[in-house]
Write a protein that binds this DNA or RNA. Structure first.
Lengths: 366, 366
DNA sequence: CGGGGGAAGTTTTACGTATAACGTCTTTCG
DNA sequence: CGAAAGACGTTATACGTAAAACTTCCCCCG
């Protein structure tokens, strides 16, 4: 057996010759119009494929002479060469593509998150593919079936727990947006400083003199909204003589309309300030108020959360907490890049700002 | 040499043994935690890698026995095997991924288009990556640099001409959404039936008795909006005694507010009906009307286009033309699939529907 | 003058998959 | 009873790239 091996090794010519012929055939065939490969570029520039890879990969310093490098680049331009990413990905074992999981694309908010993440990603040579998580898209029992791309990492925003385990099972680097920050999942986390947002709202309304509050709360179970409810209660409890009621509502204009109408026409003293978990909820509240003959802000102050385009479409314009969606996406991507490079991502929350507009005023204003 | 071959053939054990050792080395190294490959599955199931590929690729009928196929599937499940898409793409020369180019993600509309396209894509084993075209994202001199994925095709929505040529230069199968339909580009096209949308609006308003119109027009150069303006003019010209003025505005609430305020307070008879090229423009018009003391719909009827969530957030709710964004995306993807399969995509326009709400009424209503 | 060392490449290999081409072994049929 | 035809696999190869390892050639230094 060894002898056999030896005999083949010592006769390389036959091998090489066969290879040559084969290659010639290939290039003749490809001469038609197929996409040029690095080998075609190499042939055009009169160098080896490896040289092309070095030059175009910008790793040629001290390995290829400047004139040769120029020739290669020229040939590549001439042929309109574009590296085959599938091949590159296979070789490198990395796709430089990450998945962004969003709960839905029904508002501009997640569009902003995507935009921010994609911008930072592009700066680092990464791409971002989107996975709107719930129903809506195909079979998709599995996020990764739908994202045809192979992935280097995942940014998951407000994810359901089951989908999360699917991801973790794959051991992919993971960053969670606005999710449980107590480190129980072990994943990196980027949060908006929602607590501070609530503080600012409470301070603003208390400062105007409000004491009777209604919290129009998103009825979806989510860490964000739980924290928000708790913080609001705490802030108000710190001031004597305040009252706080809560009305849950689905995050939709109609849902909010129904819930707000019921809550505002309930017996007992009518609240003078309405704190909404979302700008859409506020929009529903506007309609409820108008239907009940309540003027905003004279009879009822309203605040929102998000600062969507909707906020300035309302009349009066909505006082709301601005979330910088793009910044959120940027930070998420930066955190993921940190994880990918085995660095520890920083854990500072993203600041939010209260935007004061016409929907809030002292209670009982004329 | 022939002798050599013969001797090896008749001594298969040696060969197998050598192979075994090699594999063992590899698997020992990989035993750590690397992702399992089809070879690992093969080893676990006691078959060749080719058999694994056949079974999992569902091409095994008559080539692999049922029990063996089961063993392979079991092993794959056991190991949590997931095919390496980069390798598959390289082998097949196709990525089953298409690019969706959208002008921006600032409204739900394009989110809907994406959702619809992605659903159809998923049903056919395709993925969709998103490219929000203009500024906003990174360097992106070139759409394909940002889309790290290699692409099988492109769906381009309302694209600028220069980006288009970049795409066409790549000879990728292309479908254009709501773009020039005169076939001059040679690309397949899917359009919304905007002409019919305008007809319905005109009919509705004329039927209510309106004769004096203002067209609040999107000031971006786009085939869609040009067609719309022309059709509106034609429809109204068909009825004697009608007047039509046009006010261009940037597509934003503030822009519309400014333009509408100016147009509505211009000298001459005030229009009784305001046709807006976009729901956002309508939102701006609402604010202008309120500021001028005009009641909607009593003093001014307003119509929009899109039927965004915004339309029902307004008070009164906006009469508008509903565009089914998801259907649009679905049709776009179906057309692209047709092109990819060398079929000719159908050229029927997508129907739109007028949704009558509270913002329109007969002129001079109490 | 010998050889160490850099410059400028080239040859070779591996990434993981899909599939064409090739072997066996058993069954069937003329 | 010999061969053709399945059934059930296997072996070998190509996809296009990146990069490690190797080859030349030339210059410079001790």
């Amino acid at each position: 057996m060894c002898a056999v091996h030896e005999s083949r090794r010592t006769d390389p010519d036959a091998r090489i010759h066969a290879h040559d012929v084969q290659q010639k055939d290939r290039s003749t065939v490809a001469a038609g119009s197929a996409r040029p490969t690095s080998r075609d570029v190499a042939q055009a520039a009169g160098v080896s494929q490896a040289a092309v890879s070095l030059v175009l990969g910008d790793k040629w310093r001290g390995r290829v002479s400047e004139p040769t490098a120029d020739r290669v680049r020229e040939a590549a331009r001439e042929l309109g060469y574009r590296p085959n990413l599938a091949a590159r990905n296979l070789r490198l074992g990395s796709t430089r593509t990450v998945l962004l999981v969003v709960p839905a694309l029904t508002t501009e908010f997640f569009a902003g998150v995507y935009t921010g993440a994609a911008r930072v990603a592009a700066e680092h040579g990464f791409g971002v593919v989107l996975y709107p998580s719930p129903e809506g898209i195909g079979p998709a029992r599995d996020p990764f079936a739908s994202a045809q791309a192979a992935l280097d990492g995942v940014i998951a925003s407000s994810m359901a727990a089951d989908a999360l385990t699917a991801i973790r099972g794959d051991q992919l680097p993971l960053v969670m947006l606005d999710s449980d920050p107590d480190g129980s999942t072990g994943a990196a986390t980027v949060n908006l400083d929602i607590r501070d947002g609530v503080r600012q709202v409470a301070e603003h309304l208390l400062g105007l003199g409000h004491r009777s509050f209604l919290h129009l709360a998103a009825d979806i179970p989510s860490w964000t909204f739980e924290v928000r409810a708790r913080e609001l209660a705490e802030q108000l409890a710190a001031v004597p003589g305040t009252a706080l009621r809560t009305a849950p509502a689905p995050i939709s204009i109609d849902g909010a309309l129904t819930a707000a109408t019921a809550a505002l026409s309930a017996p007992g003293p009518r609240p003078t300030a309405l704190v909404c978990d979302d700008d859409k909820l506020a929009a529903g509240a506007y309609k409820a108020a108008r239907r009940l003959g309540l003027r905003i802000p004279e009879d009822l102050s309203v605040t929102g959360l998000d600062d969507l385009a909707l906020a300035t479409a309302l009349d009066p314009e909505l006082t709301t907490v601005r979330l910088d969606a793009e910044l959120f996406g940027e930070r998420g991507m930066q955190a993921l890049l940190a994880v990918l490079e085995s660095r520890t991502p920083p854990r500072d929350d993203i600041p939010v700002t209260l935007v004061t507009r016409g929907s809030t005023a002292p209670p009982g204003a004329p």
